[in-house]
Design a binder for these strands. Structure first.
Lengths: 190, 190
DNA sequence: AAAAGTCCTTAAGGTACCTTAAGAAATTCA
DNA sequence: TGAATTTCTTAAGGTACCTTAAGGACTTTT
């Protein structure tokens, strides 16, 4: 198993000694998901936090009328879960699917809670992750409120060129909150 | 000075002994802001994190065309700042104004960074705050993408009845991402 | 290799929400 | 207290984005 990517991610924020590293590694499990596999389904217990080693995931929400909204894409070196439900022990509101064959590390909620106690430095690590996630979502709210779809699309391409290469236009449209037909019109008008 | 509210907030998440409490209290400063005062202006250095003891604040963003979008309201027992700029030492993108006479505790970025080192338990406290902030923003993104304005307005009234009582309809409209005129139409149609 | 499904696009007609303007009600200020 | 400002509303015309439908290009499955 290749732990380099995930351990480097952690090392960017907190220093771990050998023992702490081994303990962390012993708490995560590795899984492969083929393209189209679901890591999480609405209604399921959501007690896993996932880290993308390779491949790509998409988290999405299906509303009452059946419309899909993409909540986030996760590419290598990103963490993802239905965070609200993971933290509060609620049944999942989202779906998480592999949009490519993906290699994933996962940690269970109870192991994470124990990790915080055994290696308190991880409080800092996840504080920083949560801060980044918070400010990213807040910027997205601001964009959604203040920019028309065309500019949001251009910003998406600028900010996430590597994601844009991997996902379909339909998925980008559902991330931007518009229909594929309208995204098509936007692209034509460039 | 009345530290009860803020210390209770902290006690809900981490236990502090007398010494730790005193240290924390020594790092926060108290300020009063009259209604309409600005705590933060776009372009300013944003090196303060604010906690609302009483009153109410509003954080908003002004886009290129002069349109205001309300990012969040902060009522008693809430923390608020332009988090992205606070964390990254960037000039503020937002305005934060008192919408009532308000009593505020503030901590400076460098004191917070030192607090994490002297009392690492605060890593946990702020991790939990950031988690909650993240999931709140994410739910807002989902709502903005999947619900029409009328339902977003009803949800706002359900979720934040105490805020709805304090702020103007114009401010609610700018939080929902609609014009005051359209909010008026929505209210009429109930 | 054919069949089935999904994606992307085009186009026509519809709707949610915006812009501008203006007046009445409420609040702030002198 | 009266004047000024801001809020909330109504209404008419406009635009961004949606819905439905259909066809061609890929991709996946058999």
């Amino acid at each position: 198993m290749n732990y380099e990517l995930i351990l480097n991610n952690i090392a960017r924020h907190i220093p771990l000694d050998k023992e702490e590293t081994d303990y962390f590694v012993s708490r995560i499990t590795f899984r492969e998901f083929p393209k189209k596999a679901l890591l999480l389904k609405e209604g399921q217990v959501c007690n896993l936090l996932s880290y993308v080693h390779s491949g790509a995931l998409r988290a999405y929400f299906i509303d009452g009328s059946g419309k899909e909204s993409t909540i986030m894409f996760a590419v290598p070196d990103w963490w993802v879960t239905d965070m609200y439900c993971f933290l509060n022990g609620r049944p999942a509101m989202m779906y998480i699917e592999a949009i490519e064959n993906s290699c994933i590390f996962q940690i269970r909620k109870e192991d994470l809670d124990e990790l915080y106690i055994k290696v308190p430095k991880f409080e800092r690590y996840f504080r920083i992750l949560m801060q980044n996630a918070y400010t990213r979502e807040q910027l997205r709210v601001i964009e959604n409120l203040s920019l028309p779809a065309k500019e949001r699309y251009n910003n998406f391409l600028d900010k996430y060129p590597h994601i844009a290469r991997v996902v379909t236009l339909k998925q980008i449209a559902s991330y931007l909150g518009i229909t594929p037909e309208f995204l098509s019109a936007i692209r034509k008008s460039k």
